[in-house]
Design a protein around this nucleic acid. Structure first.
Lengths: 104, 104
DNA sequence: GCAATAGATAAGCAGATACTTATGTGATTC
DNA sequence: GAATCACATAAGTATCTGCTTATCTATTGC
């Protein structure tokens, strides 16, 4: 089940940091390592897990591999979250702003 | 960091099942065990983790302890998700419906 | 072809996690 | 007040996770 992979992937703070960095723009694996203290194999392993969860996708460009956020994973989280909307507080401003953006 | 606790808590499929069951309505720990094959201590441990993550809250009622969904945890996930709204696909129907509900 | 570079994969290991059984704690019932 | 019930906590253990070092694969440039 992919839902399980998504939450497992995000359970690790290093992977969330990698994901956040990717959200700033597509980047190859070496560039991702800058600023995060992490070995090359560890980064490669984290990216494989994020990719398998559908949170990230890759595109090989010569001997570089560019990674970027995959909207599919985010959509699945949004769907999971939507199941519990009965419990959300009346105002979640961030989401209101989101919807306004979407309608423009 | 609570964000970390939330994602760690949701990384376990048994805990997500417990959370989902609680979303149907407040329930005590014994009632929660019905339908899920899990020992009493295991349930108690899972509930402690969900509670510590802010996903669930408890209210003691005599010798029973009623658990219910805590909106705080869900709000934090929504905020985390909102950070990446630039990557959401143009239409996430579930969330649109949510906002319409909220405006009424 | 050969060296260098970007990245993936393999194997091993220390620490974390989710379970188990056993026991403790607090409230209820008789 | 003794037994019972609902639940929490403790301690031990098998399994999982994330790291490490070592090695492999694929691409580039000479």
């Amino acid at each position: 089940m992919i839902e399980n992979e998504i939450f497992r992937a995000l359970a690790d703070p290093t992977r969330r940091a990698i994901f956040e960095k990717l959200a700033a723009g597509r980047m190859n694996a070496s560039a991702l390592r800058e600023g995060i203290e992490i070995s090359q194999p560890a980064m490669s392993q984290h990216l494989a897990i994020l990719r398998s969860a559908g949170l990230v996708r890759e595109e090989r460009q010569g001997r570089f591999v560019n990674y970027e956020v995959d909207p599919e994973g985010l959509t699945l989280i949004a769907q999971w979250l939507a199941k519990y909307r009965a419990y959300w507080p009346a105002r979640i401003e961030a989401l209101k702003i989101l919807l306004k953006d979407m309608d423009q």
